[in-house]
Design a protein around this nucleic acid. Structure first.
Lengths: 148, 148
DNA sequence: GGCGATTTGTGCGTATGTATT
DNA sequence: CAATACATACGCACAAATCGC
């Protein structure tokens, strides 16, 4: 029916659509996406297809789904952003980044009881880490290297 | 039922297992993998799980599945690209430092409630109710900043 | 601490389009 | 051209984990 050949399967299209929405800020960093059933119905695809799209983005480090909790945004962009960023990075900026990372991660892990001044975004972090976190701590890159 | 599930879901384990097999040369570059049904039965997982694993590897550029034809190997390793990028930038230590700092900061904040550096001031950090650390710090600084 | 609701994880069946033989 | 093999896509059901009350 469609004259143009769509070589990308529906799951890949769904993944790219989700990535676009994430970039647009529809779901902030660390926020939870709607449930799979509702999201699949909203996108007009089946749950299996949506799951494959989520898995594809999870493999790229953008999403992270946990059983019983939901799907969370762990990054706003793919790894390609890293190599463009890393290419401009010098060792000196690493030291500065270390301070930023330490402060940011500490603020996130300390149950956000006292929001630090340096914390830019106050995105809610769902895991809350109250239970014994058998799950590895996932760190959200809310910082960035600034070219000098 | 074989349940060697550690922390990652079965689909992620399947993906890594497939990647290991590909790296071992079981399926050469450009070769076709067995059918989903046979492969799923061979790995002892369902087709949905195998499909999610394939999709995860397809997102990383290792596999490429074409409808009606099969799943083909398009790359031998996904880390190869990362390594080349990092080696070119000569700042591979950034990644290691990021992981190390993340763990260190999270552990410090979760146990000692250490305030972030930027928020340290003359004001006293909540000293009350300093509970005993249920999560002992076992992290040792294995990273270091390497000058080029 | 327990119980129930919600959500993801996993498996299976089936229909359809596509590529190969 | 016909048949077979295969991936694609959808839907359903149950299990496991998590969260809220």
């Amino acid at each position: 029916m469609v004259s143009q050949v769509q070589r990308h399967p529906l799951a890949a299209q769904t993944a790219q659509l989700l990535l676009t929405r994430i970039r647009d800020g529809e779901w902030p960093l660390g926020h939870r996406l709607p449930g799979e059933t509702t999201l699949a119905a909203q996108l007009g695809v089946g749950r299996s297809t949506l799951r494959e799209a989520i898995r594809e983005l999870a493999g790229k480090g953008v999403l992270d789904s946990r059983q019983g909790a939901g799907v969370f945004v762990t990054a706003l962009d793919v790894a390609e952003d890293w190599d463009t960023v890393l290419r401009r990075t010098t060792i000196a900026s690493v030291i500065e980044a270390r301070i930023a990372i330490e402060a940011e991660a500490a603020a996130l892990a300390a149950t956000r009881r006292t929001p630090p001044i340096c914390a830019r975004s106050a995105a809610p972090w769902p895991p809350a880490a109250s239970k014994a976190s058998r799950y590895p701590i996932t760190w959200t890159p809310t910082w960035r290297f600034t070219a000098r």
